[in-house]
Amino acid sequence: MSGYVFDFHGLRLEAQASGVLWWGAGGWLVVADLHLGKSERMARRGGPLLPPYEGLATLERLAAEIAALDPRVVVSLGDGFDDLAAAEALDPLVAGALARLAQGRDWVWIGGNHDPGAPAGLPGRAADSLRLGRVTLRHQAGQGPDISGHFHPAVRLAGERRRAFLLGGDHLLLPAFGAYTGGLLQDDPALAALVPQGLAIACGARAIPLPLGRRRS
């Protein structure tokens, strides 16, 4: 596997190069910030008309991870949808793909700031947060130890911006998985406050760990 294995408050976890988190012991796959329906929401609100294919692109990548890992539980760590209207107006092709992926597994939608509450008519169940041993799974980092998304963290590596996991003492932050999601660099004050020291794990063809908080940039 091209992932990076580490321990976090008693859990042995693997940061996959694709940006999903894998807890092998329980067969859990955790993915953050899918932002399905983003192009639809932007178009609806008078913004630019982005290509309406990001849902398919995102789910195709997610399908590859699910096929490889065959998880028992899939957790969407919030902002699975760009907003609730987008969830309800999901392209039938995307909704169909989602239904196929969810078949035979427990699928949990944790609410995010974009999609509080449960999406109607879609597979899976909704939750505000989940517990995994001592660790809380929620959308936005709070009282640690927790695993969260929300910030779309990224790092600069060899002149390129890459999506990244940020691993600190109390918080593990996941990169955004959705195709049309930007990134917030790890030295942004919001992120530096949460993870002042630790590791960033850059996504790409392989998961590449690098140190954080040693005033690199």
């Binding site: 639809e40 178009a43 008309l49 290509p51 309406p52 294919y53 107006a89």
Partner: peptide
């Protein structure tokens, strides 16, 4: 937007 696959009148 000129997309081949255009499902919505919102576009």
């Amino acid at each position: 937007g000129g997309y081949a696959l255009r499902a919505y009148d919102r576009w």
